[in-house]
Computed example of a mutant assay.
Amino acid sequence: MNPQVGIVLGSDSDLPLMKDAVKLFDKMGISYELTISSAHRAPEKTATYARTAEDRGLKVIIAAAGLAAHLPGVIAAHTILPVIGVPVKSGALDGVDALYSIAQMPPGIPVASVAINGAKNAAILAVQILATADEALANKLRQLKEDLAREVEAKDARLKELGVEGYLYPIGHETNK
Results as ranks from 00 to 15, higher is better:
115 A>N: 12
110 P>A: 05
80 I>W: 08
127 V>N: 04
84 I>G: 00
118 G>E: 01
77 A>S: 12
115 A>E: 09
127 V>R: 04
138 A>Y: 01
155 K>H: 14
83 V>T: 02
145 K>R: 15
127 V>I: 15
111 V>T: 04
147 D>G: 10
77 A>P: 01
74 V>Y: 04
153 E>W: 00
100 Y>K: 13
116 I>K: 06
84 I>Q: 02
88 V>Q: 00
90 S>V: 13
122 A>M: 07
147 D>E: 15
106 P>S: 10
120 K>R: 13
116 I>G: 03
63 A>S: 06
109 I>F: 01
90 S>G: 11
70 H>R: 10
74 V>W: 01
133 A>K: 15
95 G>N: 08
124 I>A: 02
111 V>M: 05
87 P>Y: 03
121 N>C: 10
105 M>S: 09
158 R>A: 14
101 S>Q: 03
135 E>L: 13
68 A>H: 11
104 Q>I: 06
140 K>Q: 06
155 K>C: 08
133 A>P: 07
132 T>H: 15
147 D>M: 09
97 D>R: 06
130 L>H: 08
89 K>F: 02
65 A>W: 03
111 V>L: 05
145 K>Q: 15
72 P>Y: 05
96 V>G: 04
142 R>C: 08
105 M>D: 03
70 H>W: 08
111 V>Q: 04
144 L>V: 14
99 L>Y: 07
100 Y>A: 13
94 D>G: 08
144 L>A: 08
152 V>L: 10
71 L>Y: 06
154 A>K: 14
95 G>T: 07
158 R>C: 08
77 A>F: 01
76 A>T: 14
86 V>C: 06
107 P>M: 05
72 P>I: 09
139 N>A: 14
61 I>Q: 10
133 A>E: 15
91 G>L: 14
91 G>V: 12
129 I>V: 15
150 R>P: 06
65 A>E: 04
105 M>P: 02
109 I>N: 04
78 H>M: 01
124 I>V: 15
82 P>D: 04
87 P>T: 05
129 I>R: 12
80 I>Q: 10
75 I>F: 01
159 L>M: 15
121 N>I: 04
114 V>Q: 01
67 L>I: 14
115 A>P: 07
115 A>I: 04
102 I>R: 11
125 L>P: 12
120 K>D: 00
156 D>F: 00
93 L>M: 13
83 V>N: 02
142 R>S: 12
100 Y>C: 12
63 A>I: 03
101 S>D: 00
79 T>H: 02
136 A>Q: 15
122 A>F: 04
108 G>C: 06
103 A>E: 10
61 I>T: 11
144 L>F: 09
73 G>M: 11
69 A>E: 04
137 L>M: 01
136 A>G: 14
141 L>W: 07
120 K>P: 05
140 K>W: 00
156 D>H: 03
121 N>D: 07
123 A>G: 08
72 P>D: 05
69 A>K: 03
96 V>K: 11
154 A>I: 09
159 L>N: 12
124 I>L: 12
120 K>T: 05
123 A>L: 05
76 A>Q: 08
103 A>T: 06
123 A>K: 04
147 D>S: 14
73 G>L: 11
94 D>T: 09
105 M>W: 05
97 D>C: 06
123 A>V: 07
128 Q>G: 13
117 N>W: 01
91 G>E: 11
86 V>S: 06
118 G>C: 09
